[in-house]
Design a protein around this nucleic acid. Structure first.
Lengths: 346, 346
DNA sequence: GTGAAAGCGCTAACAA
DNA sequence: TTGTTAGCGCTTTCAC
């Protein structure tokens, strides 16, 4: 013998009070034309009957779902977890819900995600493009249907939509400048695959920072790896084999930096005294290794919040005129820890 | 001059083919009574017109939203990111979408999340209860409305709903046994707050493992901390101040283990040769510190998958009879790394 | 094998 | 200030 399942609608409240469903609807949405007295009794009976408005019905009628669809490569990657955190918090304050779709970096899944979202009548889509994706027609489809689209992190310019990214160039510039200020003269860089835009930007930031500070760029001090701990180890070994080894290393991202750190330790060089080290991305582990790793934060939570804000900006002023897409570039934040600060804590 | 916004409905297809919307609907859902010929033309025109079915309308009519609501404390915690990953992948293969709600560990938000989900007509709710929550009426409300509810990780037994947890006792037992097998005789435990069930379970697992292996439990070797790196450091210092220091430590979770590791290093004791160390939770950083940290995996992805599976089990056989709630207990997985394996790699 | 008609629960234009 | 009516887009029962 189980409890009766509640299924209370506007009509039930209306019947109870001998008024129409329309009045109940208006009373509950605080319509100005409804008397305070009716509003009060309506609200009371709604409570009494444990009424829950049916959003599905409301959405169908109003053409507004109050749902944002978010497309990410994987919820398991801490970066995207943080971004979702940011998106959800902003969405929540705007009375929106967040629907998640994971692509596993696959174009096919990404396409399917877009389809589902369109069918689910989401009011907007926030997406980070998968590595596998070349054809962008599914994103064009979103625009064509008049659904606001905002890209974050994995962005593409050709779509003409709003986007949020972090300024990789500025981050690299700041990281390198920081090493200069620590008194380092021979600052090496372990780079990533140069056809990847963000890695190339970081190289440029490094080079320009050296130039600005009057330090000659030395090609021997630039090596290229493949974004992994092992690759970082190998690259660092090359640098340690130079006739004159560097006194600082800016690694293109934290895993590479970690590999470099291991090689430096194995060579019995002191970090940061003999070789200062800084990475990029602020991976969680950096805070827990010894020495703690200096790095550049990509402001992931903020990125999510800003992406959501961009959506709400479009949403809230749908007054005709095709809006100009906003391209938001977040300033990354330098995080200085033991690996790059000489006389740390002294 | 922007592109016309597509808004194609079943009616548009019907008009185009001089048939009724009903037939189109049946054709698209592959109804047996519809001729192959009609199905074919219908599908063709649907494609031609770029028809996307409106799930909202379909949901309203069918009373099924194909959406699972997931309530978590925070998407930023890597544990929950993994769980979401698991849930989403299973949901996706079942043509379901996942709606996320973050509670920030607050009862008020959790209540609001449940409300929103009920109003959104989700077909089921998967939830991890926030620390702040004592009153569980909102969860009872879910059951009362006939919506399947599955709890994971942060579970409570009094609700009589299905749940997925990891077997903390077994994990602790395995971790301790592993240390015994490494030849350790004086195995210490840094515990957590004992009023927290999982921490208490881990203590029990530790004690029972010692007993089973014929090692006397020594109260001096059990200290209690507060789940933080600093607390781990302090607790370890106490252990190192004993007349006879331990030759192994099982820490209640990884951050505590990390603190302990730092203290051991500062005391110039070798890990694992002088003191072997193992943690719990498989935090990402454990793989990257030196030495790499042995730990116990809580199978987060699997937990998400199983939670989703439990939901689909209920969903797929709604044949009357009140179902017995399933209490799924996942076997944790021992992860042996450098910090606990003597002669590692030899 | 297909059509006609009703209705899921809500909202909004129009009337009164 | 409230009621009437229609309809969002789809599914489904009942006809034929």
């Amino acid at each position: 013998m189980s409890e009766a399942i509640l299924k209370v609608t506007l009509m039930d409240i209306a019947r109870e009070l001998n008024i129409t469903a329309a009045t109940v609807s208006r009373a509950l949405s605080n319509h100005p034309a409804i008397s305070e007295a009716t509003k009060k009794t309506v609200r009371q009976t709604a409570d009494k009957l444990h009424y829950q408005p049916n959003k599905i019905a409301s959405s169908l009628r109003s053409g507004k779902s109050n749902i944002i669809g978010v497309i990410i490569p994987s919820a398991e990657i801490s970066f995207f977890g943080s971004v979702i955190h940011g998106i959800e918090s902003v969405a929540s304050t705007n009375h929106y819900n967040v629907l998640i779709y994971q692509t596993s970096e696959l174009y096919e899944y990404e396409k399917r995600g877009v389809q589902t979202f369109l069918q689910s009548q989401v009011d907007g889509v926030l997406a980070s493009i998968s590595k596998d994706t070349i054809n962008l027609d599914h994103y064009r489809e979103i625009k064509k249907r008049g659904v606001p689209l905002v890209l974050f992190d994995r962005v593409v310019d050709t779509l003409g939509v709003s986007s949020v990214v972090v300024d990789d160039y500025a981050g690299a510039f700041a990281a390198t400048s920081h090493l200069v200020k620590q008194g380092c003269k021979r600052i090496a860089h372990i780079g990533g695959q140069q056809h990847v835009n963000i890695f190339n930007q970081r190289l440029k930031g490094y080079i320009d920072a050296l130039n600005v500070h009057g330090i000659q760029v030395d090609d021997d001090l630039i090596v290229y790896g493949k974004i992994s701990i092992d690759s970082g180890r190998e690259c660092m070994k090359k640098l340690l084999a130079l006739p004159r080894i560097p006194d600082a290393v800016f690694a293109v991202e934290d895993f590479t930096a970690l590999g470099a750190m291991q090689s430096i330790k194995e060579a019995n060089r002191k970090i940061p005294d003999e070789i200062a080290l800084i990475g990029f991305a602020n991976e969680p582990f950096g805070e827990y290794i010894t020495p703690t790793l200096s790095t550049v934060s990509q402001q992931t939570v903020r990125m999510g919040q800003e992406a959501a804000n961009l959506f709400f900006n479009v949403m809230n002023k749908r007054d005709g005129a095709d809006q100009q897409p906003t391209r938001l570039v977040l300033e990354p934040e330098l995080i200085c820890r033991q690996s790059s600060i000489k006389n740390y804590g002294a």
